[in-house]
């Protein structure tokens, strides 16, 4: 009798352990299945008034905890690119810009748990900041992107007014570049006149295999992390210097009109800062 009771208890114990193992396994499997990869087109037409500018390939890898958006990366374009692009808007207006990629690309990593946004941003600066709070206004307007029904949201963020289309089918708050904080994944976003334009190309979700989402690694380039405020100052100073440099060169030309300093930060960068 004693032996039978012991056997019965052991069997129950075994069942309990098996159940725990199954639950744990399922949890791991479930969390793995949440990994996704979105491919976007990343078009920058700053100052052009229409989406006619430089077009990059971009990736967003995400899971339940983090996301990493990358663009202007050599491997995403099939090799290193460095070229001046002449863009004729109409018969009276032209733009000359550069399409340039680099080995690691520009990276934007959202760490949900620690509420940090880590970037390998312009100037190859490693920038650490709190995840910016973006006050989105969600409307009832809907449209389909791929096989996803998306809702429209709009906001003002760092000098530009953005419209975003997000899907609640993937209830994760990520998106292209630094745009995030909606109750679903952003599949398309653009500013006024689509000078900045992130457009959807494809998605794999859930992915069959787990991809490790690696945060930007400043040590790999022997660089220090800087604050967003420091980054902002650096960029403003670089922009001022670039205008001076450009003016010095153009003064040598016999232009029909004198060079005007109407080249704002918005002509060069996605983010436009107040005290430029």
């Amino acid at each position: 009798m004693k032996l039978r009771t012991a056997f019965f208890l052991n069997t129950n114990k075994m069942k309990f352990i098996t159940l725990i193992v199954i639950i744990t396994f399922n949890t791991i499997l479930h969390s793995q299945s949440q990994t996704g990869l979105v491919q976007y087109g990343h078009k920058q037409s700053m100052g052009m008034g229409a989406p006619i500018g430089i077009d990059y390939n971009a990736n967003l890898i995400f899971d339940n905890e983090n996301s990493l958006y990358t663009f202007a990366k050599d491997s995403l374009e099939g090799g290193h690119i460095r070229e001046s692009v002449y863009i004729e808007k109409d018969k009276d207006n032209f733009f000359v810009n550069s399409k340039i990629t680099n080995k690691l690309g520009f990276q934007y990593y959202v760490d949900k748990e620690n509420k940090k946004l880590l970037s390998r941003d312009i100037g190859f600066n490693y920038v650490k900041e709190e995840i910016p709070t973006i006050n989105w206004e969600i409307s009832d307007e809907k449209k389909d992107i791929g096989s996803f029904e998306c809702l429209k949201a709009s906001t003002e963020f760092r000098g530009r007014t953005y419209t975003a289309w997000f899907t609640t089918s993937i209830p994760l708050p990520y998106g292209p570049w630094k745009l995030q904080g909606l109750p679903g994944l952003i599949l398309e976003a653009y500013d006024t006149n689509k000078e900045i334009y992130f457009y959807f190309k494809s998605i794999k979700y859930p992915m069959d295999s787990k991809i490790k989402i690696q945060k930007p690694n400043s040590e790999s380039e022997n660089k220090e992390w800087i604050t967003f405020s420091e980054y902002k100052k650096t960029l403003i100073n670089k922009h001022k210097k670039a205008i001076e440099n450009g003016r010095m060169l153009i003064e040598g030309f016999d232009s029909a009109d004198t060079a005007e300093d109407k080249y704002t930060m918005g002509n060069s960068y996605i983010e436009i800062f107040d005290n430029e």
Binding site: S84, I122, G123, A242, G246, I250, D257, A259
Partner: peptide, 26 residues
């Protein structure tokens, strides 16, 4: 004739515009 344009030159791969100009030229 003249044409109005903006010009931005990046000397390195780091996304910094090193020479920028906007105006009207031949």
């Amino acid at each position: 004739g003249t044409v109005t344009g903006t010009l931005s030159t990046h000397c390195d791969d780091d996304g910094i515009a090193d020479y920028v100009w906007s105006g009207t030229i031949c």
